[in-house]
Write a protein that binds this DNA or RNA. Structure first.
Length: 887
DNA sequence: CTGGTCACG
DNA sequence: ACGTACGTGACCAGA
């Protein structure tokens, strides 16, 4: 079956240029656009296996379109030289790869593509057109699909006539009418001023075409009618400009477009010349030019033996359970507590079974349910934490997670965003797995395909798991993270799921009541503010607020943002002395935040079934190894201001008579710093259990501790924070409201005293430069690719990260250890107390009265003993009838 | 869908 | 000279 791919060369290289970070070869020539183009090209070849292919380029400076309209593509920025230099490179590379390229004087790439696609269409051949330009949609037909490139060049959306109808309610031909009405700023096509996509679509749905709209203009009214009448000619011309010319006099034959596959003899040298080593490797061409005949692509997807399970086949699945090596649970929905379970797939070495979720209710599925819930059976999967939660709320127990490929991928590189299973499969050069988006769509476009296709996709995932897991185990061992993975993160993931399922009660009634109080305060404040401003406006709009403060009231502009005046709290504090309205706005902000995020937001998350909030701890987000919390975030419940702190009264035990018990590490990050820097002074402070900020002040200012006043302590505290964050004089000056010079002096003084800390800061940066990454005490890694950047900002950022990550990350390691140990203790001692929340340096429990005494000593003991450092760890415990009281 | 703002450690 | 403190998530406005 013939398949032709037509690539809009100019468009794609342009997109690639702006999407890719700068990349230069040894000679200093920029190659980023060619690289981006090539990765996309190779992906197209792998995924769509074309038999014929061409890349079309614009030729010449003026085209026939300019004859009718001088300004066509006027106002467009000149092509930057860094990009134009890359065209010859790309063309040479394409020759090496064996991809035909077409161009023709006075015609644009669009027109060439339009013409070739028409010819192919007429011959009944299957065509795919690749471009970032929506204009191309007009070429879609029964045989022709448009692949719209999105997000730089990394994603592709496929459009046939059906998809165009779904999205716009238009036929492909009507795309030209759409452009005729709305215009296109990037091509300087005017359209009708004031008519955007929305209006244009409405008009077309009613009148069908530009001509139809012009004829029917009488039936319109007001401004719209006027606009269209005055710009009728613009509309006609715009449509013409947007119409792709499909009669270009091309002499090329079908045979000239043939693409028999990459030619390894010439592709290797061409890629090598551009220094695209990663691509050479991906194509297995890195050896000599003769890298093997068929090695030009990733291993072809083996034909999987997939069984779509129906009721009758459940016994066969049951019989296969002992041979299962991996499973994938397909869910739908962001919040796993509310997610749908679509189905699951089980992989043995030979067969892959897809089991639709409904089948799990059948009696014959009992062995499968038992298998899922058996903690003794080791399971390999992807995001098993999510699977566990989703299944739990459907009444199905899950246990035995052994290797979670998502979690392993996170440990191997916690900052890599693209860690979908499909990405991992690609990373390891395994047979391709379609991204979910391609099969299921996303957002509003999410649709389950027919059973066979769905089953094949989900089974494809489970089939991919074993290969990925094997590679990861190897890599974890090579990077000394196997222990971190199997003894800490994997066990923790089950504990987190338990905490989340347990949830914490949030008192709906009390929240509503507090909400009413806030509401009347908000109304009162708003009224006063409007009265002073002399007008009502949207107080939540920084834009409108800026207008009032800086234009109407003429207050001085302290700081600007990208988009206008800054009105954040720091700015408002400075403005407060100038005008009484400012203080009111600050109060309004405070209460409005509490109301929207913590009253209304929290109420929305309370489950009507059990009156609890079930947060979702994410173990694979924070680059330092910390957890994050979502739906709702229970790691940022107010505490600093009393008004907000009251929110904590709403969090209560789930059983009468029980208590909330909270324990937090005291100065864990500075204690960690004392340990890893081995600074004598800092260690001494903790060994003697002194107030660290007072001690710092006394040392830095050279006065006895008794002589440290509150101001000195405040400064020392800011320095201590700064040290942990990777200090800079600027940051400290901002924080303390002093000059940069003073801050620099201050830091110097600090380092003079705490020389071990200085040595650590210097060494960790050197180490990062050398190794390219930093680690925590437990060996958790973070790569810092910018540590050697020539850009000052990027490099400075990386340096501060190098200083901070081992500290923050080790603290995260420690509390994770404490959680695993705590879980073990609770189970071992048969306690009924439950661990509910983690807030970075704090653990929150609910505790029955008869366990209170025991827990008061056990929890801090476990936390303090989680990891042995050269300074003691300290945890402080408190309890009460709610989270507020546990202070 | 991004930016501004603000809640937490 | 460069222009920032480290790590998160939720809400709102306004394209």
């Amino acid at each position: 079956m013939d398949k032709l791919i037509l690539i809009d060369g100019n468009n794609i290289i342009y997109r690639a240029f702006f999407a890719m970070p700068p990349l230069t070869n040894a000679a200093g020539q920029q190659t980023n656009a060619v690289y981006g183009f090539t990765t996309m090209l190779l992906r197209l070849i792998e995924e769509h296996k074309p038999t014929h292919m061409i890349v079309a380029f614009d030729a010449g400076k003026t085209t026939f379109r300019h004859e009718g309209y001088q300004d066509y593509k006027g106002g467009r920025q000149k092509t930057p030289p860094e990009l134009s230099e890359q065209f010859p490179l790309l063309k040479e590379l394409l020759r090496g790869l064996g991809v035909p390229q077409f161009e023709l004087e006075t015609y644009e790439a669009d027109d060439i593509i339009g013409t070739v696609s028409r010819q192919a269409d007429e011959a009944g051949r299957s065509v795919m057109i690749v471009s970032g330009d929506k204009d191309m949609l007009q070429l879609a037909s029964a045989h022709t699909t448009i692949a719209l490139v999105r997000k730089g060049v990394t994603e592709i959306e496929l459009y046939g006539p059906e998809q165009i109808r779904e999205k716009y309610g238009l036929t492909p031909e009507q795309i030209t009418d759409l452009k005729g009405l709305m215009g296109d700023a990037s091509d300087n096509i005017p359209g009708v001023p004031g008519v955007g996509e929305k209006t244009a679509l409405k008009l077309l749905h009613e009148f069908g075409s530009v001509e139809g709209v012009l004829e029917g203009v009488e039936s319109l009214k007001g401004k719209m009618k006027e606009r269209i009448e005055t710009h009728a000619e613009d509309a006609r011309m715009s449509k013409k400009l947007a119409t792709i010319y499909r009669e270009v006099p091309l002499a090329h034959t079908w045979e000239e477009m043939a693409f028999p596959g990459l030619n390894p003899d010439t592709a290797g040298p061409a890629l090598a010349k551009l220094e695209f080593r990663s691509l050479l490797e991906r194509l297995n061409l890195s050896g000599s030019s003769a890298g093997g005949e068929e090695a030009a692509e990733r291993p072809p997807a083996p034909e999987l033996e997939i069984v779509i399970t129906d009721e009758a086949k459940l016994p066969e699945v049951a019989a296969a359970l002992p041979d299962v090596q991996a499973l994938h649970v397909e869910t739908y929905g962001e919040n796993p507590h509310r997610a749908e379970v679509i189905g699951l797939a089980l992989s043995t070495s030979g067969r892959h079974y897809y089991v639709p979720f409904e089948l799990l209710k059948q009696e014959a599925a009992a062995p499968l349910l038992e298998w899922l819930g058996d903690p003794g059976i080791r399971k390999t999967g992807y995001d098993l934490h999510r699977a566990d939660l989703a299944l739990h709320w459907k009444g199905i127990a899950f246990a035995g997670a052994y290797h979670d490929t998502q979690l392993a991928a996170y440990l191997l590189d916690p900052t890599e965003a693209n860690q979908s299973l499909s990405d991992l499969v690609a990373k390891y050069g395994l047979p391709r797995l379609a991204p979910d988006e391609e099969v299921l769509g996303k957002g509003a476009k999410y649709r389950l395909p027919e059973l066979a296709k769905l089953g094949a996709h989900v089974a494809g995932k489970s089939a991919a798991l074993l290969g990925v897991a094997a590679k990861q185990e190897r890599e974890l061992a090579d990077t000394s993270m196997s222990g971190l993975f199997h003894d800490l993160e994997m066990p923790l993931s089950r504990i987190l799921a338990d905490m989340e399922k347990q949830g914490i009660v949030a008192s709906t009634g009390d929240l509503r009541e507090l909400g009413k109080e806030f509401e009347s305060q908000i109304a009162g404040l708003a009224e006063k503010i409007y009265a002073i401003a002399g007008t009502e406006f949207n107080l939540n709009s920084t834009k409108q607020l800026g207008e009032i403060l800086f234009v109407k009231l003429g207050l001085p502009v302290v700081k600007k943002t990208k988009t206008g005046y800054s009105t954040d709290a720091e700015v408002l504090e400075k403005l407060a002395p100038y005008h009484e309205i400012v203080q009111l706005i600050l109060q309004y902000r405070t209460i409005a935040k509490l109301q929207s995020t913590y009253i209304e937001g929290l109420l929305k998350e309370i489950s009507p079934e059990d009156g609890k909030v079930h947060t979702y701890y994410r173990q694979t987000i924070a680059a330092t190894g910390r957890l994050s919390s979502q739906f709702p975030n229970l790691q940022n419940i107010p505490i600093r201001l009393e008004e907000g702190r009251k929110i904590r009264k709403m969090f209560v035990p789930s059983e009468p008579g029980w208590s909330i018990l909270a324990a937090d590490y005291s100065q864990i990050e500075l204690r960690v710093l004392a340990h890893i820097s081995d600074d004598e002074r800092l260690k001494e402070a903790f060994v003697l259990d002194m107030d660290i900020h007072t001690k710092t002040a006394s040392d830095v200012f050279g006065v006895p501790a008794e002589a440290v006043d509150s101001n000195m302590r405040r400064s020392a505290k800011a320095v201590n924070f700064g040290i942990v964050y990777g200090i800079s004089d600027y940051g400290l000056s901002q924080n303390l409201g002093i000059t940069r010079k003073e801050a620099a002096q201050f830091i110097d003084q600090y380092f003079g005293i705490f020389q071990g800390v200085r040595r650590y800061m210097d060494e960790i940066v050197l180490e990062a430069r050398k190794a390219g990454y930093v680690t925590t005490l437990l060996g958790r890694r973070r790569y810092l690719p910018d540590i050697n950047a020539s850009n000052f900002n990027l490099r400075s950022f990386a340096e501060r990260t190098a200083m901070n990550t081992p500290i923050q990350g080790t603290a995260a390691d420690i509390i994770k250890l404490a959680m695993v140990e705590m879980d073990r203790e609770l189970a071992g001692r048969g306690l009924k107390s439950r661990m509910l929340l983690q807030v970075h340096d704090e653990l929150v429990f609910e505790v029955p009265p008869d366990e209170l005494e025991q827990m008061k000593s056990l929890v801090p003991e476990v936390m303090e003993g989680a990891l042995k450092l050269s300074v003691p760890l300290k945890a402080e415990v408190s309890y009460g009838s709610n989270w507020y009281e546990a202070k």
